[in-house]
């Protein structure tokens, strides 16, 4: 059985930094450009019936000029969550899309693009007003950015 330690271990070539998030989620920081390789490696190593991508979450840090993106993967076969975390520049937040590797990423990618403006390169379904009302999205505002004024 793969334990928490091994989870970080088999992805170690991509891991920049790793720590735990409360209550016991394993966080690994990776480079944004390597995200597809990380998910490919996950699907090679883990049994396909042992995990699924639960959540995609983005946070804006205007003072650091960064946007952070977290992929929460529920590895229920090994009773743990893996958090894959990457930082993107705020002016040009582009990250490769993973919907062809993990189709379940669709909802999260659409939502994160509409609310935070992270562009998922390769996802042709991205569109404004997926969630955000037309009066806000037509002004080219991403409401979850801290300086959006919403």
């Amino acid at each position: 059985m793969v334990t928490n330690l091994n989870l970080v271990d088999f992805l170690k070539e991509y891991v920049i930094n790793s720590y735990t998030m409360k209550p016991n989620r394993v966080v690994i920081e990776v480079e944004a450009s390597k995200i597809r390789e990380v998910f490919s490696k996950l699907s090679e190593t883990l049994d396909r019936e042992a995990y699924y991508l639960a959540t995609i979450e983005g946070t804006d840090f205007p003072e650091k000029n960064l946007i952070r993106i977290d992929y929460f993967v529920n590895v229920f076969g090994h009773n743990t969550y893996l958090v894959i975390r990457a930082y993107l520049p705020r002016e040009n937040p582009i990250i490769p899309s993973v919907i062809d590797l993990v189709p379940g990423a669709l909802a999260g990618e659409l939502e994160t693009y509409d609310l935070l403006g992270i562009i998922f390169d390769g996802n042709n379904y991205l569109r404004r007003s997926f969630f955000v009302p037309a009066d806000v999205s037509s002004k080219d505002i991403y409401p979850l950015r801290k300086d959006s004024g919403v």
């Binding site: 396909r48 019936e49 995990y51 699924y52 639960a54 993990v102 189709p103 379940g104 990423a105 669709l106």
Partner: peptide, 11 residues
């Protein structure tokens, strides 16, 4: 199918 359900993150 089970694999589809997981690939598409159904819960």
């Amino acid at each position: 199918k089970p694999r589809e359900a997981l690939a598409y993150s159904l819960v």
